[in-house]
Design a protein around this nucleic acid. Sequence first.
DNA 1: TTGACATTTCGTCATTTGGCGAATTATAAT
DNA 2: ATTATAATTCGCCAAATGACGAAATGTCAA
Lengths: 121, 121
Amino acid sequence: MDETLLITKALSDRTRLRIIAALSGGELCVCQVVELLKLAPSTVSKHLHILSGSGLIRSRKDTRWVYYRLSGKGSSKKAQDALKWARAALSGDKSIIEDSKALKKITRVSKEALCRAQIKR
Amino acid sequence: MDETLLITKALSDRTRLRIIAALSGGELCVCQVVELLKLAPSTVSKHLHILSGSGLIRSRKDTRWVYYRLSGKGSSKKAQDALKWARAALSGDKSIIEDSKALKKITRVSKEALCRAQIKR
DNA sequence: TTGACATTTCGTCATTTGGCGAATTATAAT
DNA sequence: ATTATAATTCGCCAAATGACGAAATGTCAA
């Protein structure tokens, strides 16, 4: 029951649902999620930590950046099924659609503005 | 997103997950759920209220007793799918199995001991 | 009608949660 | 080496949550 509870608790927050939906479009680095949510980096980091702990998302570190993605194969069936439900439940949601629009802009400019160092290489 | 959040919040508590699993065996009256959970009636009532508000369960009043059941057709697809996921996630869980054993005893004796008035009719 | 019972509502309290900024860690640029 | 950047951890605070008992509500029994 503990794993199930970790999952439902992870999904029981508006911000974390937004993160799940945002990651449905592919992996994002923390700074991009911060830009989308307009929350303090420390706050976002905590949410990502909670989602990670539930097995719903995974992280990968690339030099200075940490990228998060929805966890696919390799995660538990419970987590996969929960993700499937959550993504379906959120699809079509008004605020989620706005988020994905905002995300398009963010991923377009992030390489210049958000992560300036990245473009300089 | 609000309905989705109501559902995930409803599922994000150990006691409420136990209630969902308990109702998988069929409807129960509040006093039976109280007996199973060993919590104060007021506490159980509040949990049932939260689950009702999310659309995951429904109630029916029969004279002096109120019976709760998992909501089926007629509830939203989100709720139905969430229930399906939750029930699958909980099936086989150790503490849930113990609960269902305890429930067997409760439903067997409740008509005599728990709801004495009921047998007197 | 009076009393008993099932359930809910209300008020209270301790714990958890979500937010922030400051400090810390790790990595890259100068 | 020093500085700057991305992310995390820590400590703090306000708000939400889950527990209880007392009181209120509605229904049945005597």
